[in-house]
């Protein structure tokens, strides 16, 4: 019985060693492959960003442009009004 127990324990130790190594090797390879993949598609990564990021600034910039136009129009009108009133 004692012998049997120690042999099973030995087997369990073996399993512990092999098991953990395989888990680490498996996931280690996966890390390497993910990095490789990210590298290969690095140009493509910002894609969802590109859709979003330029969109937001472009909305803002058109907003800013519009603002500028409005400001320009108003200041021109004010200028004109003042000029008219002076004379």
């Amino acid at each position: 019985m004692e012998n049997n127990l120690s042999s099973v324990l030995l087997e369990a130790a073996n399993l512990l060693f092999i098991g953990m190594s395989v888990v680490f090797v498996f996931l280690g390879i996966l890390i390497f492959l993910i990095k490789l993949m990210s590298h290969l598609f690095a140009g493509e990564i910002p894609a969802p960003n590109k859709v979003n990021v330029p969109n937001r600034p472009s909305v803002k910039s058109t907003g800013a442009n519009q603002d500028k136009k409005v400001v320009a129009a108003i200041s021109a009108a004010v200028h004109q009004y003042r000029q008219d009133n002076k004379q």
């Binding site: 993949m37 493509e44 894609a47 960003n49």
Partner: peptide
């Protein structure tokens, strides 16, 4: 951010 292509390749990998 992670691209859709990466997410598709991942399970296959």
């Amino acid at each position: 951010p992670v691209s859709q292509r990466e997410k598709i390749i991942f399970p296959l990998m």
